[in-house]
Design a binder for these strands. Structure first.
Lengths: 363, 363
DNA sequence: ACTAGAAGTGAATCTCTGA
DNA sequence: GTCAGAGATTCACTTCTAG
């Protein structure tokens, strides 16, 4: 056991992933974005949990050995990631067909609850040079909550806004990280083999974190997650075992200018807005006691009581209950069902009146 | 041990998947297409915002006690599938995030060699009605050879021809199986809860089989694989445990008219309409978060958020909504209303920037 | 006959707060 | 922990119905 750390913030920690994770306090980060090694066969740098090197091998038996070693490594860092994750936090893991199936199965085995798999469709993938397969034009990200009961964060309204007011789908289209964004080594080549586009990670952060929350990347690499977090006003912790990448990250992060707080703030979900009781509208005289509410088609007309209950025929109760009863529906959102009639005969939705109050004094 | 079968051709066999597979001779089929149970684990009922009921998959065949039970079942049918597959044959398995990771890991564990994962992007997926996740807009197909040394078939030229003479990518865009193609029960409802579009399976067959070769579907359902195979001049074997589905398949297959290969390759390849959201301009930095947009007369100035929402006074929302709110108009096309200011003080319409992106990579 | 609008539907792990 | 109640939530496409 190494020395435990208080939660270090806005740092890229130099160290091996699993042992460094073990030094972080439990239930301390809001979100984890992980881009783990894809496959031992390709890289040859995979280490067993005891830190011994796994040799590249290609016969069937050793193939199995390799998968087992990869699984052991994956299981161990995922266990630590789950420990470090707050109860209602989520994890994102990106991979390709070489490793993502093993990761997904282990996530499920360890109790994580998959929320979506999200496809990164590459605008400019590398072609298949030998013409023996389909162009490998995507990677897969798994988004999972800590468990099935987690009350995780999903910035639905922000994602919808980002997608021209229709729900964001599970397939995302982004170009590869190229050009000026790509970090270079001294020879002008790419510094890191798999640097991810910052825009991809930014959408992940925008979807599943709030400004000020803490994002952990256990395979930090060139610091893309940290850079996106810093730009969007999130706190970050990176873990990276290669000192050259840590140094490059730090240089990179010094160049990142955080955006204005107001720009980083996403459109709030309606559930997150302050709750206004219908009674407030009555008390403030926007809907006077004794006045009438009608539905969109003026099919029903209900009377408002001084205690903010509605009455329509035999139905009595909250705006929701009466709306549901009249339509014989299992439920009804009274805010978007009932209207007041203005002096000139137009209808105004209760929800509009509520929005005015929220806009005026924040509830 | 049941009685062994000679290879039955162009039949849908009535029987349970694993025991029926065991009766087929080894190394006898060229390709397997499998659409196994997804193990959805749906709990309650789900209603649309209009209170209508969603008809979920609640069939007994999709119920498993645990991941372990699902894995045991999967392992067993995959072992038999591998036995039945010819040495140079390939297998396709389709699934969603509920099951595909387990299937992929087991394929690897059993010695299959993954060639690609292919994404079926749905043109018209069911939305996420509660706004708690991304629209689940795709399913995943894994394509694997029997082993790493297999000399598998891949009809590279045919795929390229189908895709306007560029390499076929690993993300495919198809609509759901609806309308006249969808088999109906006596009440006019869907006969099978998960019938796949024949066009999807047809592309699979065109990619990885030759005319006259034998295609096996161990979860035949309504016989989509058989129908596609018959239409494309391949031989087929289906296995299906529900007699009603077997009967429906046979009626369906009688209607299928075989076509020749050149006609199949000349089929129109419906392309997706490129749709650019304003969020794409923000994410790619063409309109950076925190920057300002103005209208033609510079009467209004709005700030761009990281989620592509605009903010101008109390108005917040999409470029369209904020434009409408400021003008007190019922609607507004934000693309032709808002401008960015260039360094030299000129105005550039958002619509121009969008056209540049469309021209560059189709979004 | 044609068109506009309404109705229906698809592999879905689909809420959250406060008492 | 449970439970009641407030209240948030849909896209693309096909088929049907009314005019």
């Amino acid at each position: 056991m190494g020395t435990g750390l208080d939660l270090p913030l806005d740092e890229v920690l130099l160290g091996e992933c699993i042992s460094t994770l073990k030094r972080l306090p439990p239930a301390s980060v809001h979100m984890i974005f992980a881009d783990p090694p894809y496959n031992l066969q390709l890289k040859g740098t995979l280490r067993r949990p005891d830190d011994s090197l796994v040799d590249g091998v290609d016969d069937a038996w050793d193939q199995f050995q390799s998968f087992a070693a990869y699984d052991a490594f994956t299981r161990e860092w995922l266990i630590e990631a789950r420990r470090v994750l707050r109860k209602d936090g989520t994890i994102w893991v990106i991979g390709s067909y070489h490793n993502i199936f093993r990761i997904g199965a282990l996530l499920q085995d360890l109790g994580f609850w998959i929320l979506n798999d999200v496809i990164w469709r590459k605008a400019n993938p590398m072609p298949n040079f030998r013409g023996r397969r389909f162009t490998n034009a995507h990677e897969t990200m798994i988004w999972a909550a800590r468990g099935p009961e987690s009350r995780y964060r999903f910035n639905y309204a922000a994602m919808k806004a980002l997608n021209d007011d229709v729900q964001m789908r599970s397939d995302w289209y982004f170009p590869l990280c190229t050009g000026a964004e790509r970090l270079r080594d001294e020879a002008g080549g790419k510094l890191h083999p798999t640097q991810k586009p910052e825009a991809l990670v930014a959408r992940v952060l925008l979807a599943s974190t709030a400004p000020g929350e803490v994002v952990l990347d256990p395979f930090s690499g060139t610091g893309t997650t940290a850079a996106a977090a810093r730009r969007l006003g999130r706190r970050y912790i990176g873990i990276e075992q290669d000192p050259a990448y840590v140094a490059a990250s730090e240089a990179r992060l010094r160049q990142v200018v955080p955006m204005d707080e107001s720009a980083a703030l996403a459109l709030p979900n309606k559930r997150e807005q302050p709750r206004i009781a219908f009674g407030v509208l009555v008390e403030r005289g926007l809907v006077p006691a004794g006045s009438a509410l009608v539905d969109r088609n003026r099919r029903w007309r209900a009377t408002v009581g001084a205690d903010a209950t509605l009455r329509c025929g035999t139905a009595t109760g909250s705006i929701h209950k009466v709306g549901a009863a009249l339509q014989a529906a299992p439920s009804c959102n009274g805010w978007t069902f009932w209207h007041v009639e203005t002096a000139d005969g137009r209808l105004r939705l209760l929800d509009e009146l509520r929005q005015e109050i929220i806009g005026r004094d924040g509830g």
